[in-house]
Write a protein that binds this DNA or RNA. Sequence first.
DNA 1: ATTTACATGTAAGGGGTTACATGATTTG
DNA 2: CAAATCATGTAACCCCTTACATGTAAAT
Lengths: 177, 177
Amino acid sequence: MSLPHAILTALLEKPSSGLELTRRFDKSIGFFWSATHQQIYRELGRLEQSGLIRSLPQPPSRGQRKEYEVLPAGRAALVEWVAQPQDPKAIREPLLLRLRAAATVGGRGLAEELERHLELHERQLAEYLEIERNDFPLEHAAEENRLQHRVLSAGIGLEQFWVEWLRETLAVLRPGV
Amino acid sequence: MSLPHAILTALLEKPSSGLELTRRFDKSIGFFWSATHQQIYRELGRLEQSGLIRSLPQPPSRGQRKEYEVLPAGRAALVEWVAQPQDPKAIREPLLLRLRAAATVGGRGLAEELERHLELHERQLAEYLEIERNDFPLEHAAEENRLQHRVLSAGIGLEQFWVEWLRETLAVLRPGV
DNA sequence: ATTTACATGTAAGGGGTTACATGATTTG
DNA sequence: CAAATCATGTAACCCCTTACATGTAAAT
């Protein structure tokens, strides 16, 4: 049940059309919750039917841009969701699974794959650090900014972890296999 | 397409029944790929139909234990899967989403939730460290063991990251909200 | 004999992924 | 006017989650 609330948050920050939302999910929000345009359109329809958002008066024809805004009920639903306890979800990391399988059946070519992942994570880390430089140049005191900075820090920390772990794992793998 | 390969790996390590697999997924394998018994039974059926595993000759009545083993075709499929490149999946972390939503609509009670998560991650970390002490007491040279140790290290590192991040975030949140 | 644990399964619903379809607007 | 781009949507498929159903074996 996270996607509808991700959309509500995005719409509260700024009323948008489906495609605009898709683009924002490709950037900032998508860093910790990704979604395709198909998911977003489906969810926008549901949210409108539930009375949590409404489309601004505009021609509802097919190829026409349709902008949505959050209704009070939507804001209330989001507030409630934020306060609700939710357990962290179990890890589902295919790469670790493949490493474990490789321990059993042998891992020819696995080092190349790990290097590829290392590059991807290095690139993502660089992107996050760039954002941090741009958006949080110095520690301002505003509460809102501090929370957003913590979210970005999580992304940075996770990427740093993977970069480090992949480097160590490659060091273990290289001389052996 | 990870679950069938997780099951193949588990069955290669030791032929098992559905319930036995479920228990092993609750322990070691489940640390990075969780699965419920419903998923496992369904997947076992598919794998058998595809000719990748077979059930050992036994009464196929309903409440009766049914043991499976991997066929050569299954092992081959696993080897191929291990070698195949797969991009890391995008992060989907509801807690970060909630933090971002809290930055917009306010986060009453969020500190308690973060503390709860902190405890959960501390407990998980302790469990991983316990396993490390038991299963990898000193660095043996066996390649197989080293890979499995790297997998466990990933779990430990991720939990350490979350513990640290949650503590810092609580420090930011506490005086403010 | 009843309860408890073991063991395998079914059903319904939600969410995500991929491929495809269609209309409107801009640009050459 | 043809092509590219913007924009909204449909359809099919797979996976995961939750709740429930059913049968067997062991314990009291």
